[in-house]
Design a protein around this nucleic acid. Structure first.
Length: 475
RNA sequence: UCCCUGGUAGCUCAAUGGUAGAGCGAGCGGCUGUUAACCGCUAGGUUCUAGGUUCGAAUCCUAGCCGGGGAGCCA
């Protein structure tokens, strides 16, 4: 029979009942008068279960010395009301079994605070800390909330490919996928293209590669998502995404998780409303289902986080056109490192000013200059802008990027030419506009960025179990 | 990729050219229905690496490696 979890015991365990638990020791405090307190954690919640072990427990003297921080134990006994102030119940042990010791001289996690940098070096042990346990639980709750949000609205969860041969999506540098032996290629023994010109630089013959052409890890499932959205109705993807950008920031990862809904018959305003409802639902669910963890974040990580999240729930996201945003930025009297004028990309300092100072809440900036945005976004009648939207939140910045898609065949082809793309490479995507085209829209949400928003953590490398970034893919 | 900054005990840091220290953690002892427990004692170091300057280098110089922050790219 599975053991009860500590979260459940702390919540509803009745004094007088016999229970058995197992977990990892956080601390032990001895009373030389003949008993010890053990703080036991099994990851089911932030709080520990206090175990009281007195010297009459079989093997007490030999075992208790090995019950150190990090050790795993199993305890059977009777649950009792606790006279201490910090817990409702405690477990009085009748048997104590050491499952696995943890040498106190070597175990890296101490009974004290550790720096984030140090914990990143022991990423395999950091889920045993309060903070990373809480992040794991909140992350799980967010994922559950995301599926529930879309499922309740009739969206289908579709699995778009991880490996792609469309070298197109324009969302960033891609990781190449190959089974070619690079050592052989380097030695001049790889499959090279035949060339009549002996002076030409050697080029790889990808017809010899596994997929018969150059392949990469996906940077977005959007284009494939659109093919299903225009067949089975609203869909969403939720999977890993890869960007080979040389980004060294607290907001970027080389491997991250992205959610991309795509909806037929949605225009940009519908898209914005869905994005707003989506974020608010996640915030609401986490505040409701992970109350204890969220209080921890508010106390130890960011003292404003609960107020920030409640503020998000209490206000409509402000809609601001790019043109209005530029006006606000040029008229506010602020001096910028990057001067503002219509047509520039909004810089981090501009986005921060808008969402943190000027509005003090999440905003949705829409209708960007089309020169700044990819080919698939719908062109506005003004000839200058496209129906793009970015959701910006205080503290994190861009959390969602999306758009209404261009559904008109000729306009799309013209935009592809403008962006120096070959429509033949996108023949299946262009087909969606040839056969039964419809207005549609969608967006992408970065899971880890939502976690930054929710937890108040400062570095995206700390809200994913094993971060991948330039120069680092350990564990 | 660019700019800034750092690398000293298990961890967090001090020592700015002259005998490498503290707090926490750990070990031992004491005390206590304790709960970031408390008090005392003890152990613990190739000062990131390689060169150089100097009577003498953690400290100054050169190169490299690694960490952190900011910017760009974006989610």
């Amino acid at each position: 029979m599975p053991l009860p979890r500590i979260a459940q015991i702390l919540l509803e365990g009745q004094p007088g009942t016999a229970i058995e638990v197992a977990g990892w020791v956080r601390t032990r405090r001895d009373n030389k008068g003949g008993f010890s307190f053990i703080e036991l954690n099994d990851g089911s919640c932030m709080s520990n279960l206090q175990i009281v072990v007195d010297s009459s427990v079989p093997g007490y003297t030999e075992t208790i010395k090995l019950v150190t921080t990090g050790a795993s134990i199993r305890v059977a006994g009777e649950l009792k009301a606790s006279p201490g102030a910090k817990q409702r119940v405690e477990l009085h042990a009748q048997t104590l079994t050491l499952l696995g010791p943890a040498d106190a001289l070597k175990y890296p996690l101490q009974k004290k605070g550790h720096s984030w940098e140090f914990l990143r070096e022991i990423a395999h042990l950091r889920p045993r800390t309060n903070t990373f346990g809480a992040i794991a639980r909140v992350r799980n709750t967010v994922c559950y909330s995301i599926h529930r949000f879309f499922q309740e609205r009739g969206f289908l969860y579709v699995h778009t490919p991880i490996i792609t041969t469309s070298d197109c999506e324009g969302a960033g540098e891609m990781f190449q996928v190959t089974t070619l032996d690079l050592d052989k290629v380097a030695a001049g023994k790889g499959p090279l293209q035949k060339s009549d010109n002996p002076a030409a630089a050697p080029a790889i013959d990808y017809t010899q590669d596994f997929f018969g052409k150059k392949a990469s890890l996906t940077v977005s499932g959007q284009l494939e998502g659109e093919t299903f959205a225009t067949a089975v109705g609203p869909v969403y993807t939720f999977g890993p995404t890869f960007r080979a950008e040389n980004s060294n920031t607290t907001r970027h990862l080389a491997e991250f998780w992205m959610i991309e809904p795509e909806m037929p018959f949605y225009e940009l305003t519908d898209n914005m409303q869905l994005a707003e409802d989506f974020i608010k639902t996640i915030v609401r669910d986490v505040l409701r289902d992970r109350t204890e963890d969220m209080e921890f974040f508010n106390e130890r990580i960011d003292k404003t986080i609960l107020a920030t999240l409640k503020n998000i729930l209490d206000h409509d996201f402000k809609r601001v056109s790019y043109t209005e945003a530029v006006e606000i930025l040029t008229k506010c009297g602020q001096t910028w490192e990057y001067p503002v004028e219509w047509g520039i990309n909004l810089q981090a300092e501009h986005e921060r000013y808008l969402t943190e100072k000027h509005f003090g809440q999440p905003i949705i900036v829409y209708d960007y200059p089309r020169t700044l945005k990819p080919f698939y976004m719908k062109c506005n009648a003004d000839g200058k802008t496209v129906r793009a939207m970015d959701v910006l939140v205080p503290g994190v910045g861009e959390i969602i990027g999306g758009s209404q898609r261009e559904e008109d065949l000729d306009t799309l082809l013209a935009r592809m030419q403008e962006c120096h793309l070959n429509p033949e490479d996108y023949w299946w995507y262009v087909d969606l506009r040839r056969y039964g085209t419809v207005p549609h829209a969608g967006f992408g949400l970065g899971l880890e960025r939502v976690l930054l928003l929710l937890t108040g953590m400062q570095n995206i490398r700390d809200v994913i179990p094993y971060p991948r970034f330039p120069g680092s893919a350990d564990f």
